[in-house]
């Protein structure tokens, strides 16, 4: 797994304590990639690498580094969108957030998990299946819960009007799917491998190929929105979003495994990605209120 292989200047140890602060993005405004508009001059990849090193050094002493710090300057859009105050801890064991929404057969159809069959013909790209299990932190399956995915097409273009990356749209690919987990917490999608795409965080910024995932647990407090990456992507070291997760082991949990057993002869390549939902479910389930 190569969630990290050091780009020249900025990896562990070499964290640059004197990094120039990355300029915050100018006030809002939709742009070609729907992201931070280009600055003049936009930060270079080297500026961003240095800022990542500095942010990782700052995070090194955090009690947990499972999730990204919300204040992560190399991802410039985070500058004005993170609270300054620490969250207020709430420990009421009967909080509404310890229950959660339910979904059922009315909410998902069998076809929703196959992103290659939404149109009259098949999309271009490398056909893949992505499967895995959704678990709580005790390793128990999250059953009957909603999993949603969305992604760019094989050329790295989203079917979203604000995405103006000059790569072709695919009339046979929209790129979103849903399913419910089964009794073992399993989910499965058939899709095509998304392409990498450019964005305007800095000059020559490219996102590694990824699939966006949205997950529900039994408790609203377990909710997770994240991104799954593909093993061995050479763009990992350059991406401030993946590297907003400051701990290498945590970062590697965002990378799927290629699993040859899941590949279907003469049809598709298989990836496996298990997901562990954070949150307090482990406690309250033991109190007998699990659904």
């Amino acid at each position: 797994m190569t969630a990290q292989h050091p780009p020249p200047p900025a990896e562990p140890g070499s964290a640059a304590p004197h990094a120039q602060p990355v300029p915050p993005p100018p006030p809002h405004g939709a742009t070609a990639r729907g992201d931070a508009p280009p600055l003049s001059p936009a930060p270079s990849q080297a500026d961003i690498d240095e800022a990542i090193g500095a942010a990782h050094a700052r995070a090194a002493h955090a009690a947990t580094r499972d999730h990204p710090p919300r204040d992560f300057p190399p991802y410039r859009s985070s500058a004005l969108r993170h609270p300054l105050a620490a969250p207020l801890p709430l420990r009421d064991p009967e909080a509404v957030e310890l229950r959660g929404p339910v979904f059922g057969v009315t909410d998902v159809t069998a076809l929703d998990s196959d992103l290659t069959r939404r149109h009259h013909a098949e999309p271009l790209g490398e056909r893949i299946t992505v499967t895995g299990r959704v678990l709580d932190r005790r390793g128990r399956p999250v059953r009957g819960q909603l999993v949603e995915v969305w992604q760019a097409n094989a050329s790295g273009r989203y079917a979203h009007r604000l995405d103006q990356h000059p790569a072709p749209l695919d009339p046979h690919f929209t790129g979103f799917g849903r399913c419910l987990t089964d009794d073992e917490g399993r989910y499965a999608f058939t899709t095509i491998k998304p392409g990498a795409y450019p964005w305007r965080n800095h000059t020559n910024a490219w996102r590694p190929a990824h699939i966006h995932f949205s997950l529900f647990g039994d408790a609203f407090a377990q909710r997770l929105v994240t991104q799954m990456y593909f093993p061995g992507d050479p763009l990992f070291p350059y991406d401030p979003i993946l590297r907003s997760v400051t701990d290498l082991a945590a970062r590697e949990r965002l990378v799927a495994d290629y699993d040859h057993e899941l590949s279907v002869p003469e049809w598709s390549l298989g990836y496996r990605w298990d997901i562990v939902l954070d949150g307090p479910a482990a406690t309250w389930c033991e109190e007998g209120r699990a659904r």
């Binding site: 499972d66 299990r133 390793g139 929105v225 949990r253």
Partner: peptide, 30 residues
Amino acid sequence: MTEPTAAAPAAMPLPPTPSQTVGPFYGYAL
């Protein structure tokens, strides 16, 4: 990554999957 096994609940808490931003293009999906 770790391959949690099904049957027995893990003795040690499993490390959670990290969060990532929803990004700008969730509109046609979520």
